[in-house]
């Protein structure tokens, strides 16, 4: 038997990752995560079943995140790009030991430097989504996805190179 908890349990990684790329600190992550959860829950009745549930959840969560971003800008919140796990790091990225955790943090940090829509595109591509599904989530044409993704990917790779990474 399926219920909302099961739906969220299966799709929580989506909300988690969107929360991480659209927030800069733990408090921001918690706020955004709550909002996405509420939006998904309240909007479930509007899910018409003509798309995959995961696609629909991506769409709702990304729209919530983008709205959240716009509201944050409006209130001119000063945010510092802290790690979600609040692990402090004072060394320059290329000097940091090559641990998986550090690389994940660096990836999130670089994604956060992208424009809001670009973050969603990159995330969906990294999640292994095909262009047509990305287009359905973002609300643009499939041909546009390719062009925008290429641009966003190049920017991301440049950010990572600036931080001392190659062979991306």
């Amino acid at each position: 038997m399926v219920d909302f908890k099961t739906i969220i349990k299966e799709h929580d990684p989506i909300l988690y990752k969107i929360g991480r790329i659209y927030s800069h600190d733990s408090a921001g992550f918690d706020d955004l995560y709550q909002e996405m959860l509420i939006q998904v829950y309240q909007s479930l009745h509007s899910f018409s079943g003509n798309a995959r549930l995961s696609t629909w959840i991506y769409r709702v969560a990304l729209n919530t995140a983008l709205t959240h971003q716009r509201n944050e800008k409006k209130h001119a919140k000063v945010v510092t790009d802290e790690r979600i796990e609040e692990r402090e790091c004072e060394e320059e990225p290329q000097k940091i030991a090559e641990q998986g955790e550090q690389k994940i943090e660096m990836l999130y940090k670089s994604i956060r430097k992208l424009q809001p829509e670009e973050r969603g595109l990159i995330m969906l591509q990294l999640e292994g989504k095909k262009y047509d599904e990305i287009a359905a989530v973002i609300g643009i044409s499939t041909s546009h996805v390719g062009v925008k993704l290429l641009r966003a990917r190049k920017k991301l790779e440049n950010f990572l190179r600036e931080d001392g990474y190659e062979h991306i």
Partner: peptide, 29 residues
Amino acid sequence: MSTFDLEGIWREDRDKAHRHYKTVEGELE
């Protein structure tokens, strides 16, 4: 220069993403 496997690193974060659910289960109820 260090190597950065974008897709590989993204996949590594998957376990943490899945574990995150446990922390919010109570809120859902």
